[in-house]
Write a protein that binds this DNA or RNA. Structure first.
Lengths: 227, 227
DNA sequence: AAAAGGTATTATGAATTCAAAATTCCGACA
DNA sequence: TGTCGGAATTTTGAATTCATAATACCTTTT
């Protein structure tokens, strides 16, 4: 028996608009026409405008007074900054997780790790990414810090548009798997400091993939590549 | 010539409601009557409701579907979680600041530090807090990471209601000043790792002040003490 | 007297309406 | 041909109105 969810219209609209942005149906910098979005969702302007305010405070859209909403433009610097921040948060989650996780929790993550290795061996990229995501999510959950979780998820939403699977070379992939091997060792040893450091480095490696190892400039706009 | 700010009504309302919460005119857990707030601000419900949505996504109020808004209740665990997070962010800001700050920037912070010491010697608590805030703000600014800055400010807003000046004993104060001495040494040496660690520990000490060294329970509500 | 049920009132959710700002369009003029 | 200015249109900002859910109140029944 699932709980009845009184979902307000503005939440629904916010979620669906987030998806539109994530999937590139609303491209970065594009002006969002209230009227048009209202028609596509079949709602009036009131809940739509409320949703836009929420998305703005989440950093996904930009509200220009009397000039409407725009999908937030991502610059390379913003992505770097966000990754630095997410690195710190992942680091913290690793430290906290080591303190709080149960033995069963560690076993569960190890099993996910084995699954992930299997996908790596078979070069199944999408399943690999999915299990990878689950591992990071499990560590975050084990940290038992809802504020951290909320903030991390918000940040990851901002950079979700930046897909890096196409730029994921064999070398980078190998590095990522290597990072994960070390993570498991640290987690089993409940070495929080170490796990935290590995997670931070791991995210730096991801950033390298995204920014093509620093070939492009800080203020350059990220073009939304949908992988 | 100051820039003309086209401040939307909903922003104004959000700011003023934030202040009401901060100053305890709206107490934690208290139900927010839309009609009443509309009357005090002299605006219609539309901008007020938009403001409430923003405050909700900032974590300052709670929106219960069809049951209106409540000022978010802070539990001890939430404050602990938030401080853990802010510790990680301060740590990051310290590391980044050491990499990016100019020599002039370091000098400016040292001067603030001297001012703060002077206030400490004279036991001028409010001026001490103000200069203290400026120092942390300067380090945060020197980190040159807008996303970090935004997130940190949001978190600090959530726990602003928790005033600790009344619980600030001589021993804690001495500890805080000691932390700051070490910070300056690390900053001058541009030792990012060390500065980061000191900032994290520094925030842990603050947390101890807030939670009275763990005398109260996790799920206990924080009573808003306005210092 | 206490509990249950139904009606009245109030508060919230969302659409509509009105006002004001921005944009577009078009003609006048250099 | 290009650009400047102003009216017409569109778009956003905010108030109002309408619909519906929650709450309060009162009656009825045991």
């Amino acid at each position: 028996m699932s709980k009845i969810q009184h979902r307000n219209l503005y939440r629904e609209v916010a979620d669906r608009t987030r998806e539109l942005i994530e999937h590139g149906e609303l491209t970065p910098g594009e002006r969002i026409s209230e009227k048009q979005l209202c028609e596509t969702f079949g709602v009036s302007r009131t809940p739509l405008r409320e949703a836009l305010k929420v998305l703005a405070s989440e950093g996904l859209v930009e509200l220009l007074p009397n000039r409407g909403a725009r999908v937030m433009q991502l610059t390379v610097k913003m992505v770097k900054d966000t990754y630095d921040l997410m690195g710190a948060l992942e680091g913290l989650s690793g430290e906290l997780a080591c303190q709080q996780i149960s033995d069963e929790g560690i076993i569960a993550i190890c099993q996910l790790h084995e699954q992930m290795l299997e996908h790596y061996r078979k070069r199944e990229m999408q399943p690999y990414f999915e299990v990878n995501r689950q591992i990071h999510e499990s560590i975050l959950a084990a940290a038992n810090n809802e504020v951290l979780e909320e903030m991390y998820n918000n940040l990851s939403y901002r950079v979700k548009r930046v897909r890096y699977s196409k730029k994921m070379t064999e070398a980078f992939w190998r590095q990522a798997v290597n990072d994960h091997e070390m993570m498991i060792v640290a987690l089993k040893a409940r070495d929080g400091k170490r796990l935290g450091q590995i997670l931070r480095d791991h995210l730096c490696h991801k950033l390298e993939v995204v920014t093509l190892a620093g070939v492009i400039e800080d203020d350059e706009l990220i073009n939304a590549a949908n992988g």
